[in-house]
Each structure stands twice: as structure tokens, then as C-alpha cells.
Design a protein around this nucleic acid. Structure first.
Length: 664
DNA sequence: CGCATGTGGATTTTT
DNA sequence: TCCACATGCG
């Protein structure tokens, strides 16, 4: 992609604080990366004077990968999620001993904190209401407690519990996710006020992704970092706030702009969706402003009425078979819904229909009981510095113990003693623990740490990351249909998007107040704008979920009629329907024996197929050489950027001003 | 303790 | 709307 004038303005902006209102699909990440490169290459800001903050690990990984592709290895002062950067400051920069913490602290998950709280309740005989929702109460009432509220929501000992919990965590040398940032803020503030300047910490640039998702303490963190002398550059979209139920707010974007006296720039050009989709989506924006399409008009949005979720799943199966026949890769098809439970019906039908699919459900190590137990045990054990004293291997330095195996550590720690060796699952459990130990060992080696420090750091960062050792993440490159909630769809794009269950009670969900209703609208906006070429919305006449009203949601009425192609049932399905059931066998046979394209044209009308890899430039290719990627061919160019394709690395973009390419 | 009555939450999920 | 839990009364 090449930088347009808005993107360029953001990259070249000179203000001390700048906040970029990046609309959906406007190249937000490209701008962020270009900004980092620009600061480094042109403004000669050293990477170790920059802090790059993201909200999720996924975003951090994507940015890291793209940066690496353009600039090789760069060492930032801080890079990653808010939590991992704060963790780094606690570990390397801040005097946590002054508060009574020890350097070998551990990070605990909300589940572990809840467990600790339950122990305290029992021990101290506290009266706590709604103990079945304790985790949620601890999360939701923490902020009022910290801000000095007198009384908890219900008349009980919750605030006393929080105080005791605080003492206990300090005693045990443990941090919750929230504590990581709160304690960091506290110490940063204290150092600033003391004015001693003894902290070895002088960030010059603070670069923030998805800034609209910050909660109150994350904003405080940013404010403090800025007070250490950093200039501020943030990108975000107030129309994509879909996590306000846990602390962010659609106003945060503008609040930050005010507080930092930041210059607001806008990236209005959407490169992703057809104009039909974009026009429709605009009606769900909070502040109808300058979101502008760059593509053709495109296919009308299909609105379809289904009897219930079973019929819908069958109809989708038919459509997907047809799309596959037409050569559309499965990976370009996605189905979004409001509730996790809605995937069940689809999974059943797709499995029998042999449609390759992946369901995006977040599973962590906590879903594997044995690993959950083992990691918790290791977290406790690793607080003891002498854990590996008397070990048979010669030295503790991991870099020198390449010959220490996971098995040796397993034996030394006597893990077998804790397992039921006669149980059916024993072999499996042993192997899982060995695999985990192996991974921890590798981590210690890579980080050049001693065994115990390596293990401890691995455990802390894995509390933040989750560990995806056993079940692979949903792989976007995998050629399968993706099923996910509207929330999970944020940041992704597909050629064909089906949003199902557009009934009142699901989309939008029944809400308490206007704020929540606004969020439902933003959520639908996020879902629609994932679609590049084709968007289909369906609703039930006879919904099988409780609290869901029959008939089209008013969100469907909010879309202008001229953008909609209304179909009571798809023609495709109708032709092969007998007694209300779709005969998929018959349909498949028909499609196979007939001239595919002809049949499909009849069924779908002359839909436009997305062009894949069509290269406009047929002239003799210009060749370039790059230090790392070797010889490649120029495939795109404007006054600032140049795009080249390399045999083993694919397409890469470069800023011309850095002249990394040698023309051949 | 059993029963009637009252209240509030359900869903999405990153670190 | 329905369900689980809290509270109050006999």
C-alpha cells in the first residue's frame, strides 16, 4: 500500500502530541509503523528512546512482524501491551523494594486472585454477598474502592476483603494484571514528585495503538510517561469502542486529545469495503463524519429471512458450497454472531457437510487442568531462589546448560509424586508437563537467564499472554470458513461476511441504557465493516433462543432500502428445498454435473468475483535489490512509497526516503 | 428452617 | 423475560 496525503500528514506531523482519528480500514497500522520508521530514519530518534504500546498481544505481534520486515531487529525502550511494558518497568527500572515487593515477584490471574479471596473470606469469617460472582465483583468494584468510595455496592465486607487482599498479595509478592499498571503508575508518579531524577528512564516518543480502548489507569500510565518528557503519537477510532463494559469509553479519545492538548488528524479513506457496504455502515457510526470510500459501488447487501437457526445453518452450507465451487477460498468467508452459543448449530451442520471451518473460542492453559495445576505450582516454587540448589547439572546458567533436559528437571522436581500414576490420563499428563518444561527451558536459554529467573519470567509473561502451546490459535491463513462473535471480528477482514441472527434481543442485545445501546450499534458497525465485497444479514421468523424477538431487527431498517437486496429465502436454497428442508445432496449433484459458472450466474446473478493477484502493470518489470530479501520486482509506487515483491518473502513496502532498495 | 417477596443480572472478553 | 439469591416473617 502507498501512503495517501492524510496518512503522510500523520507520519510527518511535527506536534508534541498528535492523535489520529483512524477510520475503519484506513491503514492505521501502516501509519503507525511508518511513523516509527520515520522517527528513526529521518528524525534520528534511537529505538531505545521509543515506547510502542498496544492493547492486545495480537496487535503487538502484528506490528513487530511488520517492523521487522522493514527495518530488521530494533530494541525499543518498551514494546508490547500496556501490561508487558509496565511489567518491564517494574522489573528493570522501578524501586519496587520500597513498597515491600521483592524482585522475584509473580503475576497472578483473576482466577488465582479469586481463590485467594475465598481463602481470606473463610479464614477471617467475612460476610460477602454474591460469592458466586466474586470475580466479577472484585473487578467491577475495585475502581470505586481505590477512588475512596465509602461503601461497597451491597452492605457487606467487600472493601475490607479488598484491603486484606492487598496486604496478602504484598506478603506473597504477587501482582494482578491491574496491580501491574497501578503500582507502576504509583512509582512513576512518586519518582516524578521526588524530583531526584535518579530513574534511568528517558523516553522521547510514546506511540500508542488503538488508543480508544484505554481504561482510566491506562490513561494515567500514558499521562505519566508523557511527563517523563515523551512526545505522544496515538492512533485510534472512537467508532470502534466495543469494550466499554470493562473500562474504556467512546469519550476517551476526545478526553485524551484535550488533556494532552493533542492535534487531531484524520484518516478518512477506507480501502477495504465496497461503497454499498460503507454507505450502510455509516448509518451506524456515532458521529456521522468523513468516512470515505475508495472502491466501486459493489454488490447490494443481501437481507434474508430464515425460519430458525437450523434452516439458516443449512442455507449457509449451500451458499458456501456454491462459493467454493466458484473458486472463492474458504478463508475469505466469515460468519459473525452476537453470542458464543450461536456457533453450535453451524458447527454441527458444517461438520456433516464437510465444510472446513474454525471457531474462534479463546482457550488458555486454564482449560487444561493438569497444566493449570503445574504452572500454579511452579509459580510458587520459583519464588524460592534455592529451588534448583543441589541439582545434578553443573551450572545454573541456562545458556550453559544446553544439555539439561526437560526430563531431568521433571525428575529433580519430583513431579511424578504429584500425579496419579495409575490413572488413564497419566501418560498424557506427563507429556504435557514435559512439553511445558521444554518450552520454559527454551525461553530461559533464549533470554540468556538463569534457569530460575528464566522460569519466573516465562511464568509472568505467560500469565499475560496465555499459553497457546496445545491448541493452535485460529489461523487466518488456514483455508477454512471462520466462525466468530462480532467482538472477535475486530481488526479482521473477509471478502464474504454473513452476520446471522439480526433480531432484536441479539443484534442489538436488550440493553439497560442508551450507553449500552450505543455500544451495540458500534459493534454492528465493526462487524459490517469487516466485509470487503459481499455482506449478508439474516434474521429469524422463529428464533430458538430465549428473549429474542421474531422478525428483522430495527438495525435492518436503519439501512437505506436502495442498498438492500431483499430475499425471503435465497434462490439457491429454494431450488433444492423439499418440505422445508434443503436437499444438499441434490444440490451438490446438480452443481457438479452442470456447467458451474453458468448455473451460478443463474443462481446468484452476475456477481463480481474479486480479482486475485491481477497485476495492472504489464510493462517490463523493474528490478531492485534489498540487503535482506535479495532481488525483487517493483509492483507499486508513489512519490513516497515503493512496493516490491521478493521471491521468498512476498510483497514488502518501503519508504523511498530511506533508500533501502538498490535499483537494477 | 420454609416460604413469600424483592432485587438484579443475563451477553461480549484482553491482560 | 426468567432465574438465582437475599431478606424478612412465622
Amino acid at each position: 500500500m502507498e501512503l495517501n496525503k492524510y496518512q503522510r500528514a500523520a507520519v510527518l506531523d511535527e506536534s508534541d502530541a498528535c492523535i489520529v482519528n483512524a477510520k475503519v480500514g484506513s491503514g492505521k497500522t501502516t501509519v503507525l509503523i511508518s511513523k516509527v520508521l520515520y522517527l528513526h530514519e529521518v528524525k534520528h530518534i534511537s529505538y531505545d528512546k521509543m515506547i510502542v504500546l498496544t492493547f492486545t498481544n495480537k496487535a503487538a505481534d502484528e506490528i513487530r512482524e511488520r517492523l521487522l520486515a522493514q527495518s530488521g531487529n530494533c530494541m525499543f525502550e518498551g514494546f508490547g501491551t500496556f501490561h508487558s511494558v509496565a511489567l518491564y518497568l517494574l522489573r528493570e527500572k522501578l524501586p519496587i523494594e520500597e513498597l515491600g515487593y521483592k524482585p522475584e515477584f509473580a503475576v497472578i490471574t483473576p482466577e488465582e486472585e479469586e481463590e485467594l479471596a475465598l481463602e481470606l473470606i473463610k479464614e477471617q469469617k467475612l460476610k460477602i454477598k454474591y460469592q458466586n460472582r466474586l470475580k466479577k465483583r472484585l473487578e467491577q468494584e475495585r475502581e470505586p474502592y481505590e477512588n475512596g468510595s465509602r461503601e461497597p455496592r451491597y452492605q457487606d465486607d467487600l472493601f475490607l476483603l479488598m484491603r486484606l487482599l492487598g496486604q496478602e498479595k504484598l506478603k506473597r509478592n504477587e501482582f494482578t494484571f491491574r496491580d501491574i499498571i497501578r503500582v507502576t503508575n504509583y512509582l512513576l508518579k512518586k519518582e516524578l514528585q521526588s524530583g531526584t531524577g535518579r530513574l534511568d528512564f528517558h523516553p522521547e516518543w510514546l506511540i500508542v495503538d488503538e488508543v480508544q480502548d484505554c481504561d482510566a489507569i491506562q490513561i494515567e500510565f500514558l499521562t505519566l510517561l508523557k511527563q517523563y518528557g515523551a512526545s505522544f503519537f496515538a492512533v485510534g477510532d472512537p467508532n470502534q469502542v466495543i469494550y466499554s463494559w470493562r473500562g474504556s469509553s467512546s469519550r476517551i479519545f476526545y478526553r485524551l486529545k484535550d488533556e494532552f492538548h493533542a492535534r487531531e488528524l484524520s484518516l478518512p479513506l477506507n480501502y477495504r469495503s465496497s461503497n454499498v457496504i460503507l454507505e450502510a455502515a455509516k448509518h451506524f457510526q456515532q458521529n456521522a463524519d468523513d468516512l470515505t470510500g475508495t472502491r466501486e459501488f459493489g454488490d447490494l447487501i443481501v437481507v434474508k429471512n430464515q425460519y430458525n437457526s437450523f434452516q439458516e445453518a443449512n442455507d449457509l452450507a449451500v451458499q458456501i458450497h456454491l462459493l467454493a465451487k466458484r473458486g472463492i477460498p474458504y478463508r475469505e468467508i466469515a460468519i459473525f454472531y452476537r453470542l458464543q452459543s450461536q456457533s453450535e448449530q453451524l458447527e454441527k451442520v458444517f461438520a456433516t457437510e464437510e465444510i472446513p471451518f474454525e471457531v474462534s473460542v479463546k482457550k488458555t492453559v486454564q482449560d487444561v487442568p493438569i497444566l493449570n495445576w503445574f504452572l500454579k505450582k511452579m509459580k510458587q516454587d520459583c519464588q524460592n531462589r534455592e529451588l534448583f540448589a543441589g541439582a545434578p547439572w553443573k551450572t545454573e546458567r541456562a545458556i550453559e546448560v544446553l544439555d539439561v533436559s526437560a526430563q531431568e528437571i521433571y525428575d529433580f522436581l519430583n513431579v511424578n509424586e504429584h500425579l496419579r500414576q495409575n490413572s488413564v490420563g497419566y501418560q498424557d499428563e506427563r507429556e504435557q508437563i514435559l512439553a511445558m518444561l521444554d518450552r520454559m527451558l527454551r525461553y530461559a536459554k533464549e533470554q540468556h537467564l538463569t534457569l530460575i529467573d528464566g522460569f519466573r519470567q516465562f511464568l509472568n509473561s505467560s500469565a499475560l499472554y496465555g499459553i497457546n502451546i496445545l491448541q493452535k490459535e485460529v489461523d487466518m491463513a488456514e483455508d477454512s470458513v471462520k466462525l466468530m462473535t462480532l467482538h472477535a471480528s475486530k481488526g479482521l477482514e473477509f471478502s464474504y461476511v454473513f452476520i446471522i441472527g439480526v433480531n432484536y434481543g441479539l443484534i442489538p442485545l436488550r440493553t439497560q441504557d442508551f450507553e449500552e445501546e450505543d455500544e451495540e450499534r458500534r459493534l454492528f458497525f465493526v462487524g459490517m465493516t469487516r466485509a470487503k465485497d459481499h455482506l449478508e444479514l439474516s434474521y429469524y421468523t422463529n428464533p430458538d433462543l430465549p428473549r429474542v424477538a421474531e422478525g428483522a431487527s430495527r438495525y435492518i431498517q436503519m439501512i437505506p432500502q436502495h442498498l438492500i437486496q431483499d430475499e425471503s429465502r435465497s434462490d439457491a436454497a429454494k431450488e433444492f428445498t423439499t418440505d422445508g428442508r434443503v436437499d444438499l445432496q441434490k444440490m451438490r449433484k446438480e452443481v457438479e454435473k452442470s456447467d458451474t459458472m453458468h448455473t451460478l450466474a443463474a443462481l446468484f446473478g452476475a456477481a463480481n468475483t474479486p480479482t486475485v493477484g491481477a497485476n495492472a502493470d504489464e510493462a517490463a518489470p523493474r528490478r531492485v535489490r534489498h540487503e535482506k530479501y535479495g532481488v525483487g520486482v517493483i509492483v507499486g509506487e508513489d512519490e513516497n512509497m515503493i512496493e516490491a515483491e521478493f521471491e521468498n518473502y512476498g510483497k514488502k513496502e518501503f519508504m523511498k526516503m530511506f533508500s533501502e532498495l538498490e535499483m537494477l
